[in-house]
Simulated scan of single mutants.
Amino acid sequence: MRIPPLHRRKGYQRFFAGIIIGTLIGWFFFLLSFGGLQNHYIMEIKKRDQRYEDLNNKFQHYREDYDEKNKEIEKNLKVQEIDVTFLNREKVKIKGLMFHELERSVKSELHDLLTDDIESVSKHSDLVIKTLENKTFLIENEKFQVKVYQMHLYTTLRLYLNVERVK
């Protein structure tokens, strides 16, 4: 059996030539469109990366500015409130009105600290503590002294005090 010589027929030659030329044109079209898409996506990625870098730089700048302004503001913070807590109120048996009078007396003693800079109050915290501890408070013919257990200082001055009756 013999394979017929199809390479001599013009119809078959045109058919195979058409397949080869169509394949080459299709491959060329594929490379052109794929290359264009890749170029487009590469440009989009570079734009996105550049925008991301710009936003990071802006964020760093704003963050540094924010931290710097916070440091300035902290230097200018003032004491706005005084909060007094008695730790051993039950042991000394201070009742309602006496308790409020003692609390008011302690706050009035520290009233000058309101609207002072936190920095200056913290520098003189020992003086504040000694002022309270050396003062004797007279309430309803009874004398009380306070000992400072803890002191927290920020916009609110928090004092934790132990109360003692003086005889």
Score class of each variant (00 low, 15 high):
46 K>L: 12
46 K>F: 00
47 K>F: 12
48 R>H: 09
48 R>Y: 15
50 Q>S: 10
50 Q>D: 11
51 R>N: 13
52 Y>H: 08
54 D>R: 04
57 N>S: 04
58 K>A: 08
58 K>P: 02
58 K>S: 08
62 Y>W: 11
62 Y>Q: 07
63 R>E: 14
63 R>V: 02
63 R>F: 10
67 D>T: 01
68 E>D: 09
70 N>H: 05
72 E>L: 04
72 E>V: 02
74 E>W: 00
74 E>P: 00
75 K>A: 03
75 K>Y: 06
76 N>C: 00
77 L>G: 09
79 V>W: 12
80 Q>D: 14
81 E>G: 08
82 I>T: 05
82 I>A: 06
82 I>D: 14
83 D>L: 10
84 V>I: 15
87 L>Q: 11
87 L>R: 12
87 L>M: 13
89 R>I: 10
90 E>D: 11
91 K>V: 12
92 V>C: 00
92 V>L: 07
95 K>S: 07
95 K>F: 10
95 K>E: 12
97 L>G: 03
97 L>H: 05
98 M>T: 05
98 M>D: 15
98 M>L: 03
100 H>Y: 09
100 H>R: 07
101 E>L: 08
103 E>K: 02
107 K>Q: 09
108 S>N: 10
108 S>R: 01
108 S>A: 01
109 E>F: 06
109 E>A: 11
110 L>T: 14
112 D>W: 13
113 L>D: 12
113 L>H: 13
114 L>R: 14
114 L>M: 14
115 T>W: 15
115 T>C: 07
